[in-house]
Each structure stands twice: as C-alpha cells, then as structure tokens.
C-alpha cells in the first residue's frame, strides 16, 4: 500500500536559499528576482527568464536571447534538447515554487510561449 505523498518541492524555498540558487545569474536578473520577491513584480521577470535560458542553453547563441525575436523556437532554432528543457523546467519550478507538467511544457515552442507560460504560472502562484 502506498502512502499519500504531499507535494514537497513546490513549497517556495526560503529567501536565502533562493538567493544562493541564482547567485551565478547576472546582476540584472538577480535584481529583477528580488523585486519579484519583495514586491510581487511578476511583469518584470523577463531578465530572470532569459538568464535561466542562457544558463542552460547547450551552445551559446550568436545573438543574445533577449535580442532574439519572440517567435524564435527553443529546440529548432536555439538548440535546446529535451535534457536542457528539463533542466530549465526543474530550475524554474524550484525558483518560483510552481509546478510544470510534461503536458504543459510540450506546448511551449518559442521564447514568447515560454515567457507567457511562466508569467501566467507565477502570477497564479503570487495570488495564493
């Protein structure tokens, strides 16, 4: 008989743990995340999202991600593979305390898809 398992990893970690998690991201991304933590500013999260993508992209792109068109496809054009997408998903889930299912992430194809998806997820989380 299996015992019920409550979701543990979607609990938002302590602020200090969050800071350690993003200590390697650029200052702009860390500042944006701090604004989100202190004031709930979800609209300004793009630097964080781009920094996470930049961190896990297998091969650095010639043009910075934030300068790429929103229609740029993650796998076909940016070279993400299923492993690096999974790394992005896990990191994002842990950072924002959200849950992303395989069914949801499979619908995410482009940079704009991902930005919109994370914004919606985080906004729902912030209202709780």
């Amino acid at each position: 008989m299996s015992s019920p398992v409550s979701p543990s990893v979607t609990q938002l970690p302590a602020a200090s743990e969050q800071e350690a998690r993003i200590k390697h991201l650029p200052a702009e991304a860390r500042a944006a995340f701090q604004r989100f933590q202190t004031g709930g500013d979800t609209a300004g999260l793009d630097p964080v999202i781009f920094a996470i993508l930049q961190d896990f992209i297998p091969l650095a792109p010639a043009v910075p991600l934030h300068e790429q068109p929103g229609t740029t496809r993650l796998i076909d054009e940016l070279g993400f593979d299923s492993l690096s997408i999974t790394e992005v998903v896990f990191f994002t889930e842990d950072l924002f305390g959200i849950t992303i299912t395989n069914e949801e992430i499979i619908q995410v194809r482009t940079l704009d898809d991902l930005r919109g998806f994370i914004h919606r997820k985080v906004a729902v989380r912030a209202k709780r």
Binding site: V5, P7, S8, V9, L83, T86, E87, F90, D94
Partner: peptide, 10 residues
C-alpha cells in the same frame, strides 16, 4: 530530500 520528485536529468 524531494522524495523522488526531483532529479538532475544528467
């Protein structure tokens, strides 16, 4: 720690 809910894909 995560009771199997997390793992590094690599």
């Amino acid at each position: 720690a995560t009771r199997g809910e997390r793992g590094n894909p690599m």
